[in-house]
């Protein structure tokens, strides 16, 4: 497509007049850098309610963006911003962020809760949130080193029903107490 346009533009002399005609389509970095004002340089967030995207699973980002766009996942600004992009844009951004190094957050966590979470995670969450949450099966998000406040906000949205829990997750979460869940979030936030 770009080649055809360029050939035509060269032939007609339009290329010299239009800067955009000479420009390549937005690169993954061009798309992703615009997100970094809120999500941090290369997706390493410094704000406790804003998730880090660095090292996030590609599939998880694409799924999240599609759900923001359709309104399936509750949002404030993300539902609106997602409408500015195509599925191909989502894939390009996701590719960029998934390749970044995991961003180790510096946050205060409860040691006892981390230990309790560590004992619960393998049997309850480990089938999908693999490698201590450093990786995710299919479109399961990476949890490691994520900001605790962000994780708590998401868990609250799941439990209020505003954000739909995947069926497999619902089965596992249902028997867990609030204290168990809180411990699990502390654990994942602590993984570096």
């Amino acid at each position: 497509m770009t080649m055809i346009w360029k050939g035509w533009a060269l032939a007609t002399g339009v290329l010299a007049m239009s800067a955009l005609a000479q420009a390549a389509p937005p690169s993954p970095a061009m798309l992703a850098n615009a997100c970094a004002g809120c999500h941090g340089t290369n997706g390493g967030s410094a704000g406790p309610s804003m998730p880090s995207l660095a090292s996030q699973s590609k599939e998880a980002i694409v799924e999240a963006m599609k759900k923001f766009k359709s309104g399936e996942r509750p949002a404030t600004v993300m539902g609106r911003l997602a409408k500015g992009y195509t599925d191909a844009d989502f894939a390009a951004m996701a590719e960029f962020f998934s390749k970044q190094k995991l961003h180790a957050t510096n946050q205060t966590l409860d040691k006892a809760k981390i230990a309790k979470g560590a004992s619960l995670q393998e049997s309850n969450c480990g089938r999908c949130h693999i490698e201590d949450g450093k990786e995710g099966k299919d479109d399961t998000p990476v949890m490691a080193s994520q900001w605790l406040p962000y994780l708590q906000m998401q868990m609250a949205e799941y439990q209020s029903g505003k954000r739909k829990m995947p069926e497999k997750m619902a089965e596992k979460v249902k028997p867990l107490s609030a204290a168990d869940l809180e411990a699990l979030l502390h654990f994942y936030a602590s993984v570096k």
Partner: peptide, 19 residues
Amino acid sequence: LSEVEAIYAESWLRNILTE
């Protein structure tokens, strides 16, 4: 008007100034 957006706004500031 949104209380959640006020929480996000604080992280907006932290991130953009850190960048």
